[in-house]
Write a protein that binds this DNA or RNA. Sequence first.
DNA 1: AACGGTGTCAACCGCCCAAGG
DNA 2: GCCTTGGGCGGTTGACACCGT
Length: 324
Amino acid sequence: MGRTPCCDKRGLKKGPWTAEEDEILVNYIKNNNGHGSWRSLPKLAGLLRCGKSCRLRWTNYLRPDIKRGPFTQEEEKLIIQLHGMLGNRWAAIASQLPGRTDNEIKNLWNTHLKKRLLCMGIDPLTHEPFSSNHYPTTKSSPPSPSTRHMAQWESARLEAEARLSRESSVFGPQPHIKANSDFFLRLWNSEVGDSFRKLSKFGEKIECHSSPISQASSSTKCGSVSALTTEVDPNTAGLETTVGSQVEEMEYCKSCKSNGEDFMAVGSDSSSSNDMEDSSDTALQLLLDFPINNDMSFLEENCSDYGAAANHAILSESSFICPL
DNA sequence: AACGGTGTCAACCGCCCAAGG
DNA sequence: GCCTTGGGCGGTTGACACCGT
């Protein structure tokens, strides 16, 4: 059937926006308390641009809440962590970084962060070390990034909900716990989670031969849950340990990793051969496990530093040469 | 100074999806 | 239920800046 063009391109201007055009667009949106219909905006505002172009210019550049300037280390860390969970869902990632646009984050990823991960010997697509391309499930192909991400999300969601449920039933209302330990649920209820729920539907379609979500729920104890624990307030961590055995398991998973053991071995049903149980998720885990206020200097520009840090902390099993 | 290589980022393109008729 | 439309998203492109030779 085909899609009709968003607008009649004839006579419309393309390319970089001038200061005058910017001014017209900003004034129009200000004076009309919003953009209204993007399609009709250019005509009403007197711009020789297509509506899409106006929308893009506004959302990526002219919006008053845009934060310009270089990304901070915190922001970069967050982007890496979110990318590990969400993949190339730039809009969802951007929703967690106030003032940053999806375009900006996408550019940052493609020009900097991707190279840094490559430099560390980590596949930016899967967040796994390149060396761990052995999939114990032999014939089955490696899980797709989206499936893995879904698995982690679902697992984390179930864990968080279960924990909350336990907390509320055992201790009654615990506002401080709620505030501190619900990073995931906040995320889940945000645009990020929303977008992921949509993805999950898609995942069910493409993975109809099995149930990736349920498999994931039972098998990824060491999944993104450990990312949650990094957000737990130390003041409440002890309480959580007494509250839920799952938290203990999470901590155990982390200690396994730090001891260099195959942490997936502690999974409840590690003997099954489904894709979600792939134990080669260490790189992603380590990325996710980095406490948000840890020093991430290993991600800085100097590739030799990455190599050293990665060799030391991440890729103990493999030596690699920084390609850059 | 000229040139080529590389990096950056704003902008465009095409697809997808939800809403509405 | 089908079709059209508008908006949003992710991938890609191309202009420009910078740097080394």
